[in-house]
Write a protein that binds this DNA or RNA. Sequence first.
DNA 1: AGAACGATCGACT
DNA 2: GTCGATCGTTCTA
Length: 204
Amino acid sequence: MARLSREFYARDTLTVAQKLLGTYLVRRLNGEFLVGRITETEAYIGRCDKACHAYGYRKTARTSTLFMAPGHAYLYLIYGMYHCLNFVTEPEGEPAAVLIRAVESAAGEETIRRLRFGEKPMTPYREKNFLNGPGKVCKGFALTTADNGLDLTGEELFVCESLADIGLPCPPPAAERICAGPRIGVDYAEEAKDFPWRFQLVKE
DNA sequence: AGAACGATCGACT
DNA sequence: GTCGATCGTTCTA
């Protein structure tokens, strides 16, 4: 199966964060493919970014994942009850990552719905708030700290450019552009709180 | 050992 | 718009 290579992730984090928009997150769970089209990302760069867990190259048990080779998954628990999915970027030794903030379901939707909402019926409210946040993405794709450190060049979790890469039909391309803005929930990060390092696809 | 806090979400006014 | 849930990580001592 064609998938993004380690070289894809080994680049500048701001580039990777933008290039990931429109690609497909693929999670293999019990033989089924759960797929989401990535629509929103944020960049975190340890070298210079006070919002990054590895700011100033701070290496602890948690941040050690950020020091792995590019193309690994960094998952952590936030607020005691949610998880966040990131992809490690930059050449190995530069701790940095891209946070996956939102996706649109593209395959395996039945399973994703059940993981996300249990047996609760869908409503317009739930439809609107399906996978539009980092904790929601992890819930819908059954990702937890148990998956921390997964190699994205492997079979369980990876990203591909096109649905054709995993043998699925491709929807027609939409008219979209990239919009940049400040990141969410990092008001404590002093000057870094205003960095325009959040990227999303918006319809024309 | 203890305390503070968080890259969030959903219920509620 | 506000607010509480809930617990691992990190820092201080």
